[in-house]
Structures are given as structure tokens and as C-alpha cells.
Amino acid sequence: MPLLSQSSGRRLVAGIPLLWLLLLFLVPFLIVFRISFSEVRLAIPPYTPLLSWHHGTPSLELHASAYAFLFTDPLYLSSYLYSLKVAAVSTLCCLALGYPMAYAIARSGAATRPVLLMLIVLPFWTSFLLRVYSWIGLLKNNGVINNVLLYLGVIHQPLALLQTDFAVYVGIVYSYLPFMILPLYTNLEKHDLTLLEAAADLGARPLRAFLAITLPQSLPGILAGSLLVFIPAVGEYVIPTLLGRTDQLMIGRVLSDEFFENRDWPVASAVAILVLLLLVVPIILFQRIERRELEAHT
């Protein structure tokens, strides 16, 4: 008799990722969700318990005060909106830069294509943190960019590049560009080029053919790439902390400050839950597109 019957083997294979998600996503989420409905207190752990005992009978203690607090202090709303704006602008910049690059790679010769793809992936071989740090060296007042421009006489005063929105955009676009390029490349590479010939044959000039044939067919790639950039960019913590403004925080930074500076776990958890709600819509969208792509190819 085999050690595992076929169906139990199949169940095992499907069960491992399920267990993974359960332990490392759902359970932590539930813990955070539960903390967000408690109140802060000076104890270990620093929040009120879920159940309290009064004269031998348990009573459920749920507080919405953390959420209420988020709506009273404008800091949170402005951080949310700022995060959305930064993520949206960065996504558009990634798309504007990434589409032509993905297109060029998809249309390049079979010999150069792996080399170009390798160059896109190459930065991942260096630590993310290190790469973001090195942007400080480029952008700071006596950094590489300012020194070169001063030396060339283009400017006479160093430009304030670091700790600006611009620096955050540069950092995010630089870091997330591969996540835009790769899904776009995967999409564009599959395109049937005879369709463009057919369009030309029917009288469409190259730009018209691109707009009518290539662009609509690459929409799934555009959406996949955009969501892969937008979703992590909203919650980005490292880049705005190292390169960004000090007077306007992104929501990821607010969250970490609530946890580690203010030690207000309930508010921090409420911030996290709202970030998640904010991202659930694009995540669901992303999964629907992925499923449709998958169905289209089977």
C-alpha cells in the first residue's frame, strides 16, 4: 500500500500554502484586528483584554475609541491621502518609464532579451535598504548630483533634493520599476505581431495600430504592474523615512510611530486595519485580473 493515497497527497500539497496563509496571515490579522478594538493601558501587553470578569461572569470589552481617534486627528487623514497620492504618482511614473522599456525588451532579439531582463532583475542582488541609502548620497546637499551641477556651473546654490516629495518619488520609482516592467513584459512578449501587420494592411499607421491593437491587449499587464507598484507603495515605510519629508508622513511611518514611539497599540492596529481596507479593493481587482488571464490561457 502506498504511504499516501492520491487524494491525501493532493490535499497535502494544497494544504501547505493554506497552512502558511492561515498561520502567517490570517492569525496575525485577527490579532491586529482584535487589538484595534481595545484601549491602551500601561501594562504588558499594553492594551485592555478582550474579556473581563465581573463577579464571575465574563463580559466582552470592545472599544471603538482607536477608530474614533483616527477621525478626530487630521494627521491620520492627511497621511492616508498623502500615501495614496504618492503611490498613485509613483505608479504613473513607473508606467510611463516601464511601458517603453518592457516594449523594447519584448521586441528585442532573442539573444539580447535575456540580457536585458537580467539587467532589470540585477538590482535585487543588492540589499534594498542599501540601495535606498545610496540615494541619500546622490541627493543630499553635498551629494553627487549637487556637486556635479555646482562644478558644471549649472547652479550656484545646492538644490534641496533630499527630504522632498521628489526624493520619495525617485526612491519608489527606482525601487518598484521592475515590478512594473516584468508583468508588462510577460504580456507584451505574448502578443501576436501578425495582428499589427493586419492592422497596417487595413490602413492603420503604426501609432494607430499601437493604440488600437497593442495598448488594449496589454491592459491586463498594465493593471497587474500598476497594482504590484501601487499596493506596496501605499504602505511604504523605508523610502519615505530615509528620503522623504519630515513634515508630512506616509501612513506606513505613522503606523510604526504609533507602535514604537507612542506605544499605542490599539491606534496602530486601527491604522493597519484601515490601510488594509484601503488596499483590499485593488487587491481583489488584481486577483480577478489574474484569474481572467489564467482562464484566457487555458
Partner: peptide, 12 residues
Amino acid sequence: NMMFQSYALFPH
């Protein structure tokens, strides 16, 4: 005008 072997119809 040409009729392509694969027909090259625009799938979308």
C-alpha cells in the same frame, strides 16, 4: 488587402 494564414483577427 491580405487574408492571413492565421486569420489575424483582433481578439479583443
